[in-house]
C-alpha cells in the first residue's frame, strides 16, 4: 500500500476537500498500473484478432484469385462447344455418305427397269420368230401340196418342203421357249424391283429417322453445353463479386492500425502518469506538473481523432468517425 500523497495541482474554484483529493490520488496510484495492463491487454487481443481475421480474408482472396484464374484458363464450356461442333460436322458427313448410298439404290432400280424394257422387246422379237415359223410352215405345206400335184417330178421338192416344215416347227418351239424364259426373267426383274423399292423406302425412313435422332441428341448436348457455360460464367461472376466484397472488408480492417495506435498512446500516457506518480510517492518530486504531463501526452498523438478529442470537451462534438479516404488523399511532394 503506497502512501497517500497529493499528486496534482488543481484550480482553486474546483478544489475538493483535501481528504477527498488525497483519497482520489491514492486510488489513482494503485489503479493506474492495473488500468494500463487492462487497456494493453484489450489492445493486444483486438490486434491479434484483427490480424488473424485479415489473414483469413487475404487467404480467401488468394484462393478466389486462383480459382478464377483456373476457371478462365480452363473454360470447359468452350471446349465442349467446340467438340460438339466438330461432332456435328462429322455426323453431317456420315449422313451425306448414307444419302449417297440411298440415291445409288434408286439409280439401280432405274437400270433394272431399263433392263425389263429391253426384255419386253426380246419377247416381242420371240413372238415374231414364232409368227415367221408359222408362216414358213404354211409355205412349206403349200409347197408340199404343189409338189404332190406334179407327181413323180415333185418328189424331191416334197422332201425339201417336209424338211422346211420340220425346221419351221423347231423354230416355233424355240420361239415359244424364248418367250417363256423372257417371261420368267421379267417376273424376276419385277420381284427385284419391288424388293428394291421396299428396301429403299425403309432405308429412306431409317435415314430420315436417324437424321432426326442425331439432330435431337446434338441439340440436347448443345443445350447442356450452353447451360454449363452459363453456370460457369455465373460462378465466375459471383466469385468475382465475393472477392470484391472481401477486399473491401480488408480495406475496412485498416481501422485496427488507427485503433491500435490510439490505444498504444493511451497505455503510454498511463505508464507515464504512473511513473510521475511514483516519483511523487517516493518524494522525488513535490507534485506532478499537469501542464508538462499534458504537453507530453499531446506530443505522442499520431491521429487527427486524438487531437480533436483532446481539444473538445466531452459531448460537445460528436466523436470522429472512421472513414476510408477517397482517391484524392495522396499528396505528392
Amino acid at each position: 500500500m503506497q502512501n497517500v500523497v497529493k499528486l496534482f495541482t488543481r484550480g482553486r474554484a474546483a478544489a475538493p476537500a483535501q481528504t477527498e483529493v488525497h483519497a482520489a490520488d491514492a486510488v489513482c496510484i494503485q489503479a493506474l498500473p492495473i488500468w494500463t495492463k487492462q487497456v494493453e491487454t484489450a489492445r493486444v487481443q483486438s490486434e491479434e484478432a484483427i490480424i488473424a481475421l485479415s489473414g483469413r480474408f487475404a487467404s480467401i482472396v488468394n484462393r478466389l484469385d486462383l480459382a478464377l484464374d483456373a476457371s478462365q484458363h480452363n473454360s470447359g464450356g468452350a471446349d465442349l462447344s467446340r467438340a460438339l461442333d466438330e461432332g456435328r460436322q462429322e455426323l453431317a458427313q456420315v449422313m451425306s455418305a448414307l444419302n449417297e448410298i440411298h440415291k445409288s439404290r434408286s439409280t439401280l432400280a432405274e437400270q433394272i427397269r431399263a433392263l425389263a424394257a429391253h426384255s419386253s422387246e426380246l419377247a416381242k422379237m420371240a413372238s415374231e420368230v414364232e409368227q415367221i415359223a408359222f408362216q414358213t410352215n404354211m409355205l412349206a405345206l403349200n409347197a408340199a401340196i404343189e409338189a404332190a400335184h406334179v407327181g413323180e417330178a415333185g418328189r424331191g421338192f416334197a422332201v425339201v418342203a417336209h424338211e422346211v416344215r420340220n425346221l419351221a416347227t423347231a423354230s416355233r418351239e424355240t420361239g415359244k421357249g424364248i418367250t417363256q424364259k423372257i417371261a420368267l426373267v421379267n417376273q424376276s426383274l419385277e420381284e427385284i424391283i419391288t424388293t428394291n423399292e421396299t428396301v429403299s423406302a425403309r432405308e429412306g425412313e431409317a435415314l430420315h429417322d436417324s437424321g432426326n435422332r442425331i439432330q435431337g441428341v446434338l441439340g440436347k448436348f448443345g443445350d447442356m453445353s450452353e447451360g454449363l457455360a452459363r453456370s460457369a460464367e455465373d460462378l465466375r461472376r459471383e466469385s468475382g463479386v465475393i472477392k470484391g466484397e472481401i477486399e473491401d472488408s480488408l480495406v475496412q480492417l485498416q481501422f485496427q492500425d488507427r485503433v491500435g495506435q490510439i490505444m498504444a498512446q493511451v497505455v503510454g500516457s498511463m505508464q507515464d502518469l504512473d511513473e510521475r506518480a511514483g516519483a511523487v510517492a517516493r518524494g522525488e518530486q513535490l507534485q506532478i506538473d499537469t501542464a508538462a504531463y499534458m504537453a507530453q501526452m499531446v506530443s505522442t498523438y499520431t491521429t487527427e481523432e486524438q487531437r480533436r478529442n483532446h481539444q473538445v470537451t466531452a459531448g460537445s462534438v460528436p466523436a470522429p468517425t472512421l472513414k476510408v479516404q477517397g482517391g484524392s488523399d495522396v499528396e505528392f511532394f
Binding site: 475496412q252 485498416q254 476510408v324 479516404q325 484524392s328 488523399d329 495522396v330 499528396e331 505528392f332 511532394f333
Partner: peptide, 11 residues
C-alpha cells in the same frame, strides 16, 4: 508522396 490511412488500394 504522403497517403493518409485508411486508404483505398487504388489511391
Amino acid at each position: 508522396a504522403w497517403i493518409v490511412k485508411p486508404f483505398q488500394p487504388q489511391t
